[in-house]
Simulated scan of single mutants.
Amino acid sequence: MKLLLPILALCLLTSCYTAERNCSDFKTGTFEFSYTIDGTERTSRFKRTEDLNIDYHEGVEDSSSVRWINDCEFILKKLHPTSNTEKEAIHMKILSTSEDSYTFEYKRAIKRANRPSRVEKGTARRVN
């Protein structure tokens, strides 16, 4: 019983914590993020407007439409897909923000039948 009250108080205090999310600050701008493929770290840059996302990846420019669900979530859909996989829309969600970066997660917007949903995370940094 003596231990129950401190545990309850700790649970109440930690459950009130929410990550800072000033998502509207990151709706537009130029950003970059780093990722690793086969042990090699690479950096990609993208520019986002209210309704367009332009990726600059290894010298190739690729455009996607942006449809905002709310201030922190949007759907990306390639404008010129070259494969069936690229035809699938991506659901992006901003999880937390800081002064010049945001942490996000993304997954397919439509779940494939009989396949687990794969969620990836990353951090984008404002460069302009």
Rank of each mutant, 00 (worst) to 15 (best):
Y35I: 01
L4R: 02
N53G: 00
L12Y: 12
D55N: 09
R21C: 15
I69Y: 07
P81H: 09
V60Q: 12
K77E: 11
F31K: 01
Y35G: 03
S34C: 05
W68K: 08
F26V: 07
H80E: 14
D25S: 10
S64E: 06
L10V: 15
R45Y: 10
Y56D: 07
K77A: 10
K77Y: 05
R42F: 14
E41M: 10
T40S: 14
S15Y: 09
T28L: 08
V60H: 12
D25M: 06
L5W: 01
K47D: 08
R48V: 08
S15A: 15
K2Q: 10
L76R: 06
C72A: 15
G29M: 00
S64C: 11
H57V: 07
I7M: 03
D51Q: 14
D38T: 06
E58D: 15
L79S: 09
I54E: 08
L79M: 13
E61C: 07
E61D: 04
Y56R: 01
V66W: 05
D55W: 14
K27Y: 02
G39P: 06
F46R: 00
E32G: 09
D38I: 04
I7T: 12
V60F: 08
C72H: 05
D25F: 03
Y35M: 05
S64N: 05
A19D: 08
H57D: 15
C72Q: 08
L76Y: 05
V60I: 14
L79N: 08
Y35C: 04
R45A: 11
R21Q: 14
L12W: 09
I37A: 07
F74I: 01
E41W: 02
N22R: 08
K2F: 11
H80A: 09
F74R: 02
L12S: 13
I37H: 06
R21H: 08
R48A: 07
T18P: 00
L4I: 11
I37F: 09
F46G: 00
V60M: 13
S63I: 07
W68G: 03
I75W: 03
S44Y: 10
C11V: 15
L5I: 10
R42P: 05
L12T: 14
I37S: 08
K27D: 02
F74C: 02
T49E: 02
T49Q: 04
R67L: 14
L10H: 02
L79P: 06
Y56V: 01
I54P: 04
L8H: 04
R42N: 15
S34I: 01
D25N: 10
E50D: 13
D38F: 13
S64L: 07
N70F: 02
K2G: 12
F74E: 00
C23F: 03
G59L: 12
L5D: 00
F33S: 06
T43K: 15
E32N: 13
P6H: 11
E73G: 03
R45Q: 15
T30G: 04
D62V: 12
H80V: 09
C23G: 05
K47Q: 13
L79E: 14
P81F: 07
S15V: 15
E58V: 07
T36M: 14
D55T: 04
A9F: 12
C11W: 06
T30A: 12
E58W: 09
F26M: 11
V60P: 06
H80F: 07
I69C: 09
G29Y: 00
E32H: 10
H57E: 14
D55M: 12
N53C: 08
S24W: 00
L12H: 07
C11N: 10
L13E: 04
L5T: 04
G39H: 02
T36Y: 11
T49K: 02
C16K: 11
V60W: 06
